[in-house]
Design a protein around this nucleic acid. Structure first.
Length: 256
DNA sequence: ATGGTAGCCTTGCTA
């Protein structure tokens, strides 16, 4: 089973690139973030035309997540549990056979010192709590998405410049590590130990051409999924295209 | 050199 994740930075602007990726990579489940459109405005026909089912929640201009899948989703959960007043569409989760998969769009949190950073940390606390609930079920699951966290300085092109950025701050990194201490596995690091491998390159200042990026998109595996991991990689080809997202897809293969 | 780019339905916000 192949699972991919991609922050597309507007699914409507990225539709040709998304369709090309689905055709080439043939993921069984594709997790999208920053779709930036209401569910009613999602380009359903084009995606369904490639044989994918679609589950999505969204709003105009910001946020939005989706699960595209070759088999229909079951047991859909929309919104991260733990705060009824949080209306930002950043989390969607469902089962595909025996595997449960979530598309996660963790808050950016910049600038530090504002309510945006407070919201990020609170959201992470809720994700930690919900992960604990999922672990109790003792099923294979994958939390895939844009975490807006560089786990270590090896995941940043310029750690000094980003020292006080919300993506690198200790408060955020410690909560990411808390997810790992609960038993989740960073799928990319199972196969790749080298530093400076990225999933995001800012549009500005020629960051892509200089390979000055961040590793902020992650596939976190529950123990029963980590037991079955066969491969994981970052696919840089979509980032090289014209009119690309600032992120590129990451995927893993589970022997399930 | 405190810049630069992209998307949205904008004239600023978010990233």
């Amino acid at each position: 089973m192949k699972i991919a994740s991609w922050n597309v930075n507007s699914v409507k602007a990225r539709l040709p690139h998304l369709l090309a990726f689905l055709e080439d990579a043939q993921p069984d489940v594709m997790c999208l973030q920053e779709t930036k459109c209401l569910a009613q405005d999602f380009p359903m026909l084009e995606v369904k035309g490639l044989g994918y089912h679609v589950e999505t929640i969204g709003q105009r201009a910001y946020n939005g997540v989706a699960l595209l899948s070759k088999r229909p989703a079951e047991g859909l959960v929309t919104g991260l549990p733990g705060d009824e007043d949080d209306g930002q569409p950043r989390y969607i989760e469902a089962s595909f056979g025996e595997v449960r998969i979530a598309s996660v769009y963790l808050p950016n949190g910049n600038p530090v010192g504002t309510d945006k950073f407070t919201y990020k940390l609170a959201w992470m606390e809720r994700l930690i709590g919900h992960t604990g609930e999922l672990l109790k079920r003792e099923i294979p699951f994958v939390l895939a998405g844009d975490y807006n966290i560089c786990p270590t300085d090896d995941d940043v092109y310029d750690p000094v410049a980003f020292r006080d950025d919300a993506l690198c701050r200790a408060e955020a990194r410690s909560r990411f590590r808390a997810l790992l201490y609960l038993g989740l596995t960073d799928a990319y690091r199972v196969f790749h130990r080298e530093p400076h491998r990225y999933t995001f390159w800012d549009y500005q200042a020629g960051r892509w051409h200089r390979d000055e990026g961040l590793r902020i998109d992650h596939l976190l595996l529950a123990p029963h999924a980590a037991d079955r991991i066969a491969a994981c990689n970052i696919d840089k080809k979509p980032r090289a295209k014209d009119r690309s997202s600032d992120h590129t897809p990451i995927w893993c293969e589970l022997a399930l």
